[in-house]
Simulated scan of single mutants.
Amino acid sequence: MRSNSSLTSKVYIKMSGQIKAAVLTGSTEKNQLTEVKDIPFPKIHDDQILIKAVSYAANPTDWKHAVSDWGNKGNISGSDVSGVVEQVGSKVTGYSKGDVVSTFLHGNYYQNRGAFSEYVIADPDTTIKYNIEKFRNEPLSVGNHKFGPIDSYEGAASVTLGLVTVALSFAHNLHISTDRNANASKYILIWSGSTATGFLAIQVAKLVYGLNVITTASKKNHDVLKSIGADHVLDYKDKDVVEQIKKIGGENITYALDTFSTQESLQSVYDATENTKDVVIDNLLFLNENSIKTNPSRNVKFTQTLVYLVMEDQKLGNMFIPTNEELKKDYREFWHKALPPHIKDIKHNNLKVLEPGFKSVNPALELLREDKVTGEKIVFRASSD
């Protein structure tokens, strides 16, 4: 009896007191982007859920917020986390206490919510629920792990931002039909398939849409990308890579996603789709037809995916970018209906597992800032303390 009372008391103190989180310091110095602080225990709204964090993933957006005016001192860092549902808002359906989930949120942006926290406020619209029977409880060992099915908290933490990005790109910006028969003869060009987003985009394009997938990558990644669904993988370093793509796709490259998103890569994507009468080209930065050399006689639509718009209007520095209901509708339709049946078949990318605890946040962000990690997602477990 005393043991149960003691446990209840500890839970109550945790749920009503302070928790630890990695927050932005306001510094841009190496290994000083974040620090561990005590923050109030988060309170959810009726349309939110609360997650007890088990594993985290680091993303380039985390360090970019930290060194720009997108993120302010005291904001909770981190955008990707997996864990167990602790609380469910009264207006939320489809989730229960104890569910294994991963979620993406606009980290580094708020002082009361971010992924690198012991408990995390999550929105159902950016959360994935997993089959707990197929999940392993033991942590992955520190070091490198190959791509594979999402059966660990580390793997789950690594995919959510990427899947939300792909969902918004495919369902709204590219407006791809989910009619697999209609897509049977169509191609999508995914430039840089070994990136975190590209790796997932290949799988979604094949599993959900049934598209023919052309992608680019260094030769060492060709076999891996073919194993997850790419029909054609070309070396982006080849001088004639654009001509190779045109020969394969002909006039049927209806969609393109540039996950590398530089002027050079966008120019290559544009040139490779030259034979298609009507094509939509998406990228993950703010590039458009004015960023490259174009032919005014071609009918090409350029779009830009800013993943945070699935949540709300965005103010990034001096830029104000509004969202809209059509965007949210297209995204939610895909996220809640088209994607869930395929989660069991999606594989996470290679993982680089760091030491558990928030002590790994700064090293993770520095690895990304210095561009020392390619073809891997950096993940780490919550502290066991």
Rank of each mutant, 00 (worst) to 15 (best):
A272Y: 04
S268V: 00
N275W: 06
S265W: 01
K247P: 06
D330A: 13
E264G: 07
T259C: 08
L285A: 15
L339G: 13
N283E: 05
Q304L: 11
S297H: 08
K337A: 12
T303M: 10
T254D: 04
V279M: 09
T303F: 07
N299C: 04
S291F: 10
L339K: 10
R332P: 00
E264T: 14
T303C: 09
T262Y: 13
I321W: 00
F334I: 06
P340Y: 11
N275V: 07
N318M: 14
L287R: 05
T262Q: 11
F286E: 14
L287Y: 07
L327K: 11
E289A: 15
K315Y: 14
K293F: 01
A272Q: 03
D330Q: 12
K277C: 05
N318V: 14
S291N: 12
Q263G: 15
K301W: 12
T294F: 01
V241F: 01
K247R: 04
Q314M: 12
T254S: 05
N290W: 08
L327R: 12
N299R: 08
T276Q: 08
N324F: 13
T294Q: 00
V307C: 07
N252I: 07
E325N: 15
K315G: 13
V300K: 07
G317I: 01
V279I: 12
V307Y: 03
V241C: 06
I253W: 03
N290Y: 07
M319P: 00
K239V: 12
I281S: 06
L306Q: 03
L266V: 05
H336K: 15
L257N: 02
V241T: 07
T305M: 08
K239T: 10
S268E: 11
G317H: 07
N283K: 12
R298C: 02
D313V: 11
T294H: 02
F334A: 09
N295F: 05
V300P: 01
D282R: 10
I253P: 04
A338E: 15
T294C: 00
E274V: 02
E326K: 14
L285M: 14
N290S: 08
K246C: 03
L287A: 03
G250E: 04
S265K: 00
A272F: 08
V279L: 03
Y270A: 06
T323N: 06
F260C: 02
M311A: 14
L284S: 06
D238C: 13
F260R: 03
V307H: 06
E274W: 01
S291V: 10
V242S: 08
L339C: 13
T262I: 13
P341C: 01
V269F: 07
S261E: 09
K329E: 14
L309C: 07
E326S: 12
N252F: 11
V242T: 12
E325V: 15
E251V: 02
N288Q: 04
N324V: 11
L285R: 13
T294G: 00
N299D: 13
I292H: 08
N290L: 04
Y331M: 03
N252H: 11
T273R: 06
D282C: 14
K337P: 00
N299Q: 10
F334L: 10
A272S: 10
A256N: 01
K247T: 07
K337Y: 10
E325A: 15
K315S: 15
P341K: 04
T323F: 09
S265Q: 03
T254V: 02
F260E: 09
K301N: 14
D330H: 11
D240Q: 10
E312H: 09
T262W: 12
K337H: 09
V269H: 08
N283I: 11
K247D: 05
L309N: 09
L257V: 02
